[in-house]
Design a binder for these strands. Structure first.
Lengths: 165, 165
DNA sequence: GGGTGATGGTTGAAACTACAACCATTCAGG
DNA sequence: CCTGAATGGTTGTAGTTTCAACCATCACCC
């Protein structure tokens, strides 16, 4: 009757720690960015992706994929960012249906100003507690997990500087 | 002027993969539970914690801490679970201010029914892609991170079966 | 050319979360 | 006792995310 293959003690321990990290980390990042820059972690992610794109422009769909957001969610967030003057929306010249999101000068400066504090937070809470060997292992483990979690490579731009075709 | 200590290539790679995992994993877990059990991942977490507590009872505050929720959030979620008959709230006999959350028989059956599919998802997306060695390393890395992310040990009940005083 | 289906994106309503104000009870001191 | 402060929870409101419905444009094909 009960065909489920339950977890071994080792698996369970590793899994529960990962759950706890996944549960806690977003709050830490979000809180720091909110306090020091008035940005959500997701808003920061959107603007950071734009800031690294050629011309600081991206199509809404591409931006949604590489930030792991649904299109409606991105649309709302970009509208709010536009109202704050950090992003601009323009119809895409190549495709009448599409919309291009531009990072404005103000937006660029906001990202640049937010980055150091964000990096500092990441260093203190994630990198510093780990030995260099553990950092290397985390890299490998992340690769293995992402092959399953992100088979289409939608977030590849985030973690892979040069995704193959 | 720019005192920020930026990330090395290795650190950056490991970090970005962790971000991607943290971004993707909740959606995978949440989606599976929603489809097969009509439960949010957070609702499942709440009921799972109750199901493992003595008498399947917990004080609201304790439940909020071990699920990493604010008290208002937990209060709302428990009210909705109560409306569905999965949880019951009773005034705590020991402290007139406090409220005890009980898992009902229906709630217990719901958790038991949801668990196999959840475990199966965890196995497929997290444990199976890793070698036994990597599982062991993930365990160690998780420990190191949680010492920083959860210094008070609020989530310790989640990942540590026997937290020391 | 004119359907037809698929793609790109926006909008509005409902569900959920965070924040702040609030009530009730407990505890400590006088 | 009685007051004031702290603890335990709930409620209301505002902001965010999700979901479904919708409009416009493109691509294919007859």
């Amino acid at each position: 009757m009960d065909e489920t293959q339950w977890l071994s003690a080792d698996e369970r321990a590793a899994w529960l720690r990962l759950v706890a990290v996944v549960e806690l980390l977003p709050g830490v990042l979000d809180g720091q960015l909110r306090r020091t820059s008035g940005l959500t972690h997701f808003e920061y992610l959107v603007m950071a992706m734009l800031s690294e794109a050629p011309e600081r422009v991206m199509r809404m769909t591409a931006l949604a994929q590489c930030t792991n957001a649904t299109l409606p969610r991105l649309s709302h967030v970009v509208r709010r960012l536009e109202e704050r003057g950090l992003v601009e929306r323009r119809p895409c010249p190549d495709d009448g249906r599409a919309t291009d999101a531009h990072l404005t000068a103000d937006g660029w400066e906001t990202v640049v100003a937010a980055a150091p504090g964000h990096v500092e937070t990441v260093r203190r809470h994630v990198l510093d507690p780990l030995t260099p060997t553990q950092v290397q292992r985390l890299h490998e483990i992340g690769d293995a997990l992402l092959r399953e979690l992100d088979p289409g490579g939608r977030l590849a731009v985030l973690y892979d500087p040069d995704p193959r075709a």
